[in-house]
Write a protein that binds this DNA or RNA. Structure first.
Lengths: 94, 94
DNA sequence: GGGACTGTAAGATATCCATCGAACACTCGG
DNA sequence: CCGAGTGTTCGATGGATATCTTACAGTCCC
């Protein structure tokens, strides 16, 4: 539980989750997100999201594509994903 | 939103919230919680919870008593408080 | 096979934050 | 007024973590 809450307490990771939520499963490679960090940090953030059970990854040729684990996450932490996806703009405002 | 999520990503603060949820409003002074930190750190944690809008404080003679702002917090972050109060033991397990 | 591209791993740095100890402000009861 | 009790503030410290740079491991295409 602390793992999930910490994973979700980062502006970069929230943006990743939101972008991922707005795309179909397995359509977004790691490099396709517009976040202001280098690829090493990005890789780290995906690792954290994976560790929290929020994101699943799969190799597809040279790229690694992602999927938001909606159902699994909802079962373990009911309402948390919905909370993150609502209220757009609240992140940047703080 | 990040403020609230960060506030809630700490084992000491989660314990405070849960203990507070199990008590009537304005019945718990700051020193009445069984957490393994000194009073300076405890004061800091209450400050964070206050800043996140989760807790309200009031002076009552020499003591400072607390109240969980259930309705207000539920309105701003639907489902988050319920998530924290459910699944006892999940914090210690991580 | 040699580049281009994508992502990870390792090491270094820097910042944030949880904690503590000590000093201070306040209230109450002798 | 003084001491006990309660909580805050300040400065310092240590640990976690977000970030970068560089180097490496893949895959694909020419």
């Amino acid at each position: 539980m602390l793992t999930a809450l910490s994973a979700v307490s980062d502006p970069v990771r929230i943006k990743l989750i939101r972008d991922l939520a707005g795309s179909a499963d397995w359509t977004r490679s790691c490099g396709s997100f517009d976040v202001p960090v280098g690829k090493a940090a990005l890789s780290h953030h995906f690792s954290v999201l994976r560790g929290a059970g929020l994101v699943e990854q799969r190799d597809e040729g040279p790229r690694r594509v992602n999927r938001l684990r909606r159902e699994e996450f909802e079962e373990r932490f009911p309402g948390l994903l919905a909370l993150l996806l609502r209220d757009d703009g609240a992140v940047a405002a703080e």
